[in-house]
Amino acid sequence: MNGRCISQEHLGDTGFSYTLSLINGKYKMTILYTLMEFGVVRFNEMKKYIGRISYKTLSATLKELEADQLVHREEYPQIPPKVEYWLTERGKSLMPLLDGMCEWGEKNRLPTV
């Protein structure tokens, strides 16, 4: 035994909890994975790729990822407006985690009935 007592521990103080706070959300990991796969992606391309996500939810989620410095947003002053998104270096550093999750899913996927 290492002398630690679970009643004195707090999950919120762990690196696990911090990482989860950055990627927790219905579409965050999907958006990050999309940017990993396709590099620079425009807003409407992202919407089409993900499918069942509202424009409002996609916009809000991208803003959260940008605030957490995982995604970069570049707006070009032209008509029609052009906005592109890509992973920052900080965002790219999460990719081994997402790759591991993908590999685990491929290996452990239960057969569909």
Rank of each mutant, 00 (worst) to 15 (best):
N2R: 11
N2P: 04
R4Y: 14
R4K: 13
R4W: 14
R4E: 13
C5H: 11
C5Q: 09
S7D: 05
S7R: 04
S7C: 07
Q8G: 06
Q8C: 05
H10D: 15
G12Q: 05
T14V: 11
G15F: 09
F16N: 03
S17Y: 13
S17M: 04
S17K: 02
S17F: 15
L22T: 09
L22P: 00
I23F: 05
I23T: 13
N24P: 00
N24D: 15
G25Y: 12
G25W: 13
K28T: 12
K28N: 13
L32R: 03
L32E: 02
L32V: 07
T34G: 07
T34Y: 09
T34Q: 09
L35C: 02
M36H: 04
M36P: 00
E37C: 13
F38M: 08
F38V: 01
G39N: 05
G39C: 03
V40F: 11
V41D: 04
V41Q: 06
F43Q: 12
F43S: 07
E45D: 09
M46F: 14
M46D: 12
M46I: 15
K47A: 01
K48A: 07
Y49H: 09
I50N: 02
I50G: 02
G51L: 01
G51W: 03
G51N: 02
R52S: 15
S54K: 08
Y55T: 06
T57W: 02
T57A: 10
T57H: 07
L58I: 03
L58V: 04
S59I: 04
S59R: 12
S59K: 14
A60V: 10
A60T: 07
T61Y: 13
T61F: 13
T61Q: 15
K63H: 05
K63M: 06
E64A: 13
L65G: 02
L65Q: 01
L65C: 05
L65P: 06
A67K: 12
D68V: 00
Q69H: 10
E74K: 08
E75I: 15
Y76L: 06
P77C: 06
Q78R: 11
Q78A: 04
Q78H: 03
P80S: 00
P81R: 10
V83W: 03
V83P: 02
E84A: 11
Y85S: 03
Y85I: 05
T88D: 11
T88M: 13
T88W: 14
T88K: 12
E89M: 02
R90Y: 08
G91R: 01
G91W: 01
G91S: 01
L94W: 05
L94D: 04
M95H: 00
M95Y: 05
M95V: 04
P96S: 01
L97E: 03
G100D: 12
M101K: 02
C102N: 10
C102W: 11
E103R: 08
W104Y: 15
W104D: 06
W104F: 15
K107Q: 11
R109K: 12
L110H: 01
P111H: 10
P111I: 09
V113A: 11
V113F: 14
V113I: 08
